[in-house]
Design a protein around this nucleic acid. Structure first.
Lengths: 341, 341
DNA sequence: CTGTTAGCGCTTTCAA
DNA sequence: TTGAAAGCGCTAACAG
């Protein structure tokens, strides 16, 4: 297996076709100024040898690029981010490019290493869901002519293109909807306030309460759940409170899913009925939300489109006419779907 | 932004440190035979210039490799595959390598293009969830010394390492469990029989029925659903049957989720109760399975471990002592969890 | 229309 | 311990 570990080169193709390497190169680059019959011979040799141009060798030549886009994501196993990655891949593939994917696990150190590695591999650009607020590594990338697009989260002080969701607006509308449904004790489950989306969604939530003159009860607010299990535990605590919430705002799918799991578990004891549990508002739609035992509403958006948009911002800057444009900040709208169940 | 689009080279670092490029190279490769104080100067210059070794240039030198692993997946947005990808990424990163990710959308043509592109980028190896039974492009990769690991699905006639799940055994045990629970009319929702997993899971299902002397009613078998929506429609058809099944075996998460969505929709009309719907057996666990309105059991396994195993098979062949080993076929066990809900 | 030369960034000789 | 030369695979630029 893999005994004959040989990768043919231009020279060998040239020899086999009885031409010079340049003729091979020209043929493979469109065949300009190469006689048709010669092209035939070259292509035949290519096929026979199973030749593939060495893109790495090509990319070191002046003017050529690697055709690689570095993508750093915090958690590829989260459906939100994997769908995002799909969008990026699709759009980037249309431009004949490929993605180098790295998972940061919300770890800035890892993100920094990853970016360094990507630069070493001469990526044409970077699409990053930043794990924190550190931006030196990204500014550094830009300073070397490798543009950066931030997705889902922005970083203060970094002049880079970005696509994010209408976090504040969505959270605000979702919370208002809960209030309009008569709730005054509303819990909050979210990711850390130190994270861009966490901060903005929390702000939208708080703003809605203030507008409606509902006092914020900090005992009903939990903001450091990154995983479903953590969210579940936080939900358990909320439900144990002396005066538990009648509705819970969940700032992302991890938290909404954790909340539902906890409700489901408690329901299965049979001690209480579904009506005894708070209804849910989830920022992020997710599969099977409609199976919720309690009423659930969703602040919906399209992570795939988020990925496509991020890719387009980058490609425009690379190939299009946005090369020297000022940083563009896009905010994708979200839509509120009340009573998914 | 990106005005000063300059990537420093060894030469510039060398100049700045007052040494030759070779000394820089040596320093960066561990510093063997370079005086400590000279190393200091070099590293200082590297830091000041923000230099990153050009991996593409390095990789064209004899003996050097790209450190890239090509990963071709059928649908990265499917949580099963995205978790698989996470496992691959993690394991590969431990070996200092990076993944080039491509989505095939179950399209063999796209897969072939992708593999060609990967070879052009001089990947060290390939991890593929094959979209079909075509193997020429993969055999070709092997013939050029680029090993291939098949994941989740094998290809007849291709001598390559592989990790798959115990599809037949899992489906068999799941079906037997349904029969033991008293079911004799069991529906089947699956992906195409022409797909490796589809064929094997279907076979396990059929085998169980045969063993227990239950006749196979082909009107209860639907095997071409690739998406949740298709699965939903197929489920609707099953439920409309004159003599509908009392249990449905779902060969993967797409089909199980589609089935549950359909049940959920029909329940919401209030015309029938949960007891009127078949119980579910799902090959693949998935988030919120426990919210199912009908009893559900799960044939569980670990896609992340599948990814890790695929990566390890490949790395062993690249770096380890499996370089010339015969193809290794691993089958990961699955576990049956009856009555998740 | 085709080939020769030169050099991209790097590192393995080989010499000092 | 350091450097000079040479060449990896490829393709602009310049002949012819």
């Amino acid at each position: 297996m893999g005994e004959r570990a040989h990768r043919p080169t231009v020279k060998e193709v040239a020899q086999r076709a009885g031409v010079s390497p340049m003729t091979v190169s020209r043929t493979l680059s469109g065949g300009l100024n190469v006689k048709p019959d010669v092209q035939q011979r070259v292509l035949a040799a290519v096929a026979e040898l199973g030749y593939h141009r060495n893109e790495n060798a090509r990319s070191i030549r002046p003017g050529h690029s690697s055709g690689l886009i570095g993508v750093a994501i915090t958690n590829i196993a989260n459906p939100y981010y994997s769908t995002f990655a799909l969008g990026v891949e699709e759009e980037v593939a249309l431009a004949g490019r490929r993605i180098l994917l790295g998972n940061t696990s919300e770890d800035v150190t890892r993100e920094t290493e990853l970016v360094g590695d990507f630069l070493g591999r001469r990526v044409d650009g970077l699409i990053v869901v930043p794990a924190g607020t550190a931006s030196d590594h990204l500014a550094h990338s830009q300073s070397q002519g490798v543009p950066v697009v931030l997705a889902s989260r922005r970083i203060d002080g970094l002049a880079a293109d970005s696509v994010v969701l209408a976090d504040d607006d969505g959270a605000h509308r979702g919370t208002i909807a809960l209030i309009d449904r008569g709730h005054t004790r509303i819990g909050y489950l979210g990711n850390s306030i130190s994270i861009f989306t966490g901060e903005r969604r929390h702000a939208g939530f708080v703003r809605a309460l203030e507008e409606r003159g509902i006092p914020l009860d900090s005992r009903l607010v939990a903001t450091d759940q990154q995983t479903v299990d953590q969210a579940r535990e936080a939900m358990r605590a909320l439900l144990r409170a002396k005066n538990p919430p009648t509705a819970v705002f969940c700032a992302n799918n991890r938290n909404a899913i954790g909340a539902l799991k906890e409700i489901s578990t408690q329901l299965s004891t049979g001690l209480r009925g579904a009506a005894d549990f708070p209804e849910i508002m989830s920022f992020d739609d997710f599969e099977l939300a409609e199976l919720s035992p309690v009423p659930i509403s969703v602040i919906d958006h399209d992570p795939r489109e988020l990925g496509r948009t991020a890719a387009r911002l980058l490609l425009d800057r690379l190939d299009g006419d946005a090369r020297d444009a000022a940083p563009r900040a896009i905010e994708l709208p979200v839509s509120l779907r009340v009573g998914v169940r």
